[in-house]
Design a protein around this nucleic acid. Structure first.
Length: 421
RNA sequence: GUGGGUGUAGCUCAGUUGGCAGAGCACCGGGUUGUGAUCCCGGUUGUCGCGGGUUCGACCCCCGUCACUCACCCCA
């Protein structure tokens, strides 16, 4: 029993799992760099009103899941529940929308939502996000989706399914909403207060309800797809075509519903079938009205966020975790204090030469130190005792071949450098 | 916020009708004066989540509480 535990819903990652998490993050970023996306470093908290306006007052995220507090200057501050709104704010603050368009950016870091934790859902979680602003070209929609697809593939995931939909333009959505509202009232109205509220404020959300009775009741609800205007429809068809040209497989999902208000036209989710209830490992969409919602100029945009934690869960579920990397290439086994001092020096020299080196600490004795060498994954052990120092040499042992040779001490670094080439 | 499940060694978990708290793994040491991963031998670690109650006696039964976990809601 330890005195302190991490706060509820806040995960620690320790080796070797933390290495896998880092690898996921890097794999998500690599394709973005190859597509001209620049790095954006963002604050993890913002003015509360920014999220309320940008994400939408009626969303669950804003209405009940924000980590909000008042700072010492009496400002209302909120730990970011998602990244897009802050990214757009930063772009506007820096005036990037006046430069070359589109502006393509990525960021990564922790997000915070005050929710009941469960598998794949933590109060603090990490996302890699990408945004492309200043163009409504459907090729950008397809590009971003393809980059996420590439990231998942490069990690070895094969079972991820891309769901694609369009929300149409605001007028399509508004018309459909009122129609759907009328349709829903007699069918699921009165079920509970939350659902009633949702029918009135954001009826599309009801279609996302997972309760069997709601699912059954809404099975043949009218579809948004049927009322999409010609422009949005053309945009959607172009996105589908580009994706097909790029070799990205997807399924059309007319019932796909996103939880944040700023989406319009393209929306998508990457779903992993082995994950249980929280199975969306990445998602995004177009948000052409977001900039105006936070008092900016008209600025179309498309973006996504990939869940780093959930993607790690997916890797574990598919059993495609990368092999553990050795912690050292060379491991010193010093016998005695003089040998310890020489080992510390030599390990330092190797590290400066770009070779991963470690040594046995404490007075472990031969056997224990060799065991530590073995566990480090090192290819070579350097055994160093008084008699070797007197002879001006070290015993260099190849831990895989079980072969050992004496090497002059002043040639050790160079010898290892050659052997590890 | 709501519901189910689980809390025993660092980790994974056994623990019989209520009768001296265990195993495997890990870790440490020895078998080898200076040689690992295999093998053999030995050893360390416990507020049985916490607080009450019942009982001669509670890891076990009862009540409460906390934590973790899965699911709903919602979402990456």
């Amino acid at each position: 029993m330890v005195a302190f535990r991490a706060p509820k819903g806040v995960p620690d990652y320790v080796p070797p799992r933390s290495e896998h998490l880092l690898a996921v993050r890097e794999a998500m970023v690599a394709p973005l760099r190859l597509a001209g996306y620049g790095y954006l470093e963002l604050p993890v908290f913002e003015d509360t009103a920014l999220f309320a306006r940008g994400v939408g007052e009626t969303t669950d995220v804003v209405s009940k899941e924000m980590f909000t507090f008042v700072d010492k200057g009496d400002r209302s501050i909120t730990l970011r529940p998602e990244g897009t709104v802050g990214a757009v704010r930063a772009v506007l603050e820096a005036g990037l929308e006046r430069g070359a368009l589109p502006v393509k950016l990525w960021y990564a870091g922790p997000m915070f939502r005050y929710e009941q934790p469960q598998s794949g859902r933590q109060r603090q979680f990490t996302q890699v996000g990408a945004e492309a602003l200043g163009s409504d070209d459907p090729a950008l929609d397809a590009e971003l989706i393809a980059l996420a697809d590439t990231a998942y593939r490069s990690l070895g995931l094969t079972q991820t399914v891309l769901h694609l939909a369009t929300l149409g333009d605001p007028e399509d959505r508004a018309g459909y909403s009122s129609r759907l509202r009328e349709w829903l009232r007699p069918r699921v109205g009165g079920l509970d207060a939350e659902t009633d509220r949702r029918i009135e404020l954001n009826p599309l959300r009801v279609l996302d309800d997972k309760r069997p009775e709601v699912r059954a009741a809404t099975a043949d609800a009218p579809l948004l797809t049927d009322v999409i205007g010609p422009e949005a429809k053309a945009h959607h068809e172009a996105v589908r075509r580009h994706l097909t040209d790029l070799g990205v497989a997807f399924v059309d999902d007319p019932r796909l519903v996103r939880g944040l208000d700023y989406y319009r036209r393209t929306t998508f989710e990457f779903i992993h079938p082995l994950l249980g209830a929280q199975s969306t490992i990445g998602a995004g969409g177009r948000y052409d009205g977001l900039s105006e919602a936070i008092d900016g100029p008209p600025l179309p945009g498309i973006g996504w966020a990939l869940g780093v934690d959930r993607t790690l869960l997916a890797l574990e579920a598919e059993g495609v975790l990368p092999a553990e990397a050795p912690r050292a290439q060379v491991f010193f086994v010093p016998l005695g204090s003089e040998a310890k001092a020489r080992s510390v020096t030599l390990a330092g020299e190797l590290r400066r030469a770009g070779i991963a080196a470690d040594l046995a600490y404490g007075d472990r004795g031969m056997k224990g130190a060799m065991k530590a060498a073995d566990r480090s994954g090192a290819a070579y052990a350097v055994v160093l005792g008084d008699r070797d120092i007197e002879a001006g040499e070290a015993q260099l042992k190849d831990l895989r071949e079980h072969a050992q040779v004496a090497v002059p001490l002043d040639a050790l670094v160079e010898t290892l450098r050659e052997k590890l080439q």
